[in-house]
Nucleic acid binder design. Structure first.
Lengths: 208, 208
DNA sequence: GTGCCAATGTTAACGCCGTTAACTTATCAC
DNA sequence: GTGATAAGTTAACGGCGTTAACATTGGCAC
C-alpha cells in the first residue's frame, strides 16, 4: 500500500500538521476533528481511518513535542559542566516559551492518564534522559555533589518545569526580567548542588 | 432577595459543590453544565442565572482552590526559619497531591487566560504571598542569603509547583520514595539559598 | 487483463454539549 | 393586592465526537 498519494493523499500527516497549527494558535481545546477535516477538505469520519479518536491525535502531537524538546536539549553544548547545566535549563524553558500551547498539552495531564499511551511515555522519557545524562556527567566531572542521581534529576526537572509553566501562564508577578530570571534561578539551585571543594563556595557568578 | 430558599434553594452553592465533586472524580473536562443541572434536579439554563458560562463556574472552583491552598500554607509553623521553609514546601506539594484535579484546573492555563478573571488572579496572589512572606521572614532572620526577594520566591515557587505537577501526573520515574523526595528536593534548594555564615554550610538536617 | 480484497473515503444519524430566546412562576416592596 | 423582578421552565440552534452502512479505488494474484 503506497504511502504517498491514495484517495486523498497523506491524510495522516496533513491532519497532524493542521492540528498542530490550530494548537499553536488557539490551544488544544480548540482542536476539533470536524474542523480539521473541513479545513483539509475531507469528511470527518475519514480521520478515523488514521486516528482511533481525538485523544490519539492529541497524543501524537504530544509525542512529536517531546521529540522536539529532546532535540533542543541535545543541542546544548556539553563541555563545561556548569555551562552545560545552565544551558540545558535555559534551553528547556526556551522551548516551553516558544511553544506554550504544545508544552501545556505535553504536561497538561488532562489527556492520556500517563500509563495509557506507551509511545507517549517513552517520548517523555527520551527528553527526561537528556537532562539526567547531563547531571550524571556533572557528577562524574566532580562538579556536582554525589547526591543520589534520581534526587538531583527530580530537583532540576521540577525547577525548570515549574518555571516554564509559571512563566507561560503569566503567574510570576515580575516576569519582566525574564531571561535573567531563568538564569538566576538555575544558578541559585546550582549553588546548592555543586560540590564545595573550597573553590566556589560563595557567590561565584560567571555572568557579566 | 433571600439567599436561603427560593424556587429551588441555594442553587449557586449546590452547583458549585456538585461541580467540585465531578472535578475530583473525573477532572475538569468531565464537568458539563447539563450534567450538573440534571444531578441537582434542575433545568440546564437555570444555571445561567448564577454563572455567566461554563468558564465562570470553573473559575469559581479555581478561586476556592486557591483559597484552600492559602489556608493550608498559612497553617504552617513559622517559628524556625528552616522548618518553616521546608514545611511550606511540603504543605504545598501535599495540597496538590490531595487535590490533583483541582490543582490542574488552578494551574492548567487552558481556562481563563490569566488577565481575564480579576478575582482568580487575586486568589492566586493570595496563595503566592504566603510563600513570599515566609521567604522574606527567612531573609530578615538572616537564615537566607539577601538575594532579591522576587528571585528567591520565583525559584521556590517554581520548584514546588514543578514537583507538584510532575508527581501528580506520574512523570517522575521513581516516585516510590515520594515524601523523602519532596523533603530532599527542598533541602537541596535550601543549601543554595541559605546564608553561609560558617554555621551551617554542610548537611545540617533538623529532622529525626 | 481481470477480478477480488482490503484500504480509504462518503453520507446519515445518534446523543451529548454550551448557549440563547421566549415564556412562566414565585417572592418581595409598597 | 399588585407590580416589578429574580429565578425557574421548555424549545431550539449549532457544534461536537463517534458509529453504522455504503461507495470507491488502488494493488495484487492469477
Amino acid at each position: 500500500m503506497a504511502r504517498t498519494a491514495y484517495h486523498h493523499g497523506d491524510l495522516h500527516q496533513q491532519a497532524h500538521d493542521q492540528a498542530l497549527a490550530v494548537l499553536r494558535l488557539e490551544g488544544d481545546s480548540a482542536i476539533s476533528l470536524r474542523g480539521i477535516a473541513k479545513q483539509i477538505g475531507v469528511s470527518a469520519p475519514a480521520l478515523y481511518r488514521h486516528y482511533a479518536d481525538r485523544e490519539s491525535l492529541l497524543a501524537e502531537l504530544a509525542i512529536s513535542g517531546f521529540a522536539a524538546l529532546r532535540q533542543q536539549l541535545l543541542s546544548v553544548e556539553q563541555h563545561a559542566p556548569r555551562a552545560a547545566l545552565i544551558g540545558i535549563g535555559l534551553a528547556y524553558v526556551a522551548f516551553a516559551q516558544s511553544e506554550p500551547n504544545l508544552y501545556r498539552l505535553m504536561f497538561g495531564g488532562r489527556v492520556l492518564p500517563k500509563g495509557a499511551h506507551p509511545r507517549l511515555d517513552q517520548a517523555g522519557l527520551g527528553a527526561f534522559n537528556v537532562l539526567q545524562d547531563t547531571i550524571a556527567r556533572g557528577q562524574r566531572a566532580g562538579y556536582l555533589k554525589p547526591a543520589p542521581l534520581s534526587l538531583m534529576t527530580a530537583t532540576a526537572w521540577s525547577l525548570v518545569h515549574g518555571l516554564s509553566q509559571l512563566t507561560i501562564d503569566g503567574h510570576l508577578p515580575n516576569a519582566d526580567a525574564e531571561p535573567q530570571l531563568a538564569e538566576g534561578i538555575t544558578s541559585l539551585l546550582l549553588e546548592g548542588a555543586i560540590a564545595h571543594t573550597d573553590a566556589h563556595t560563595d557567590n561565584n557568578e560567571d555572568t557579566p
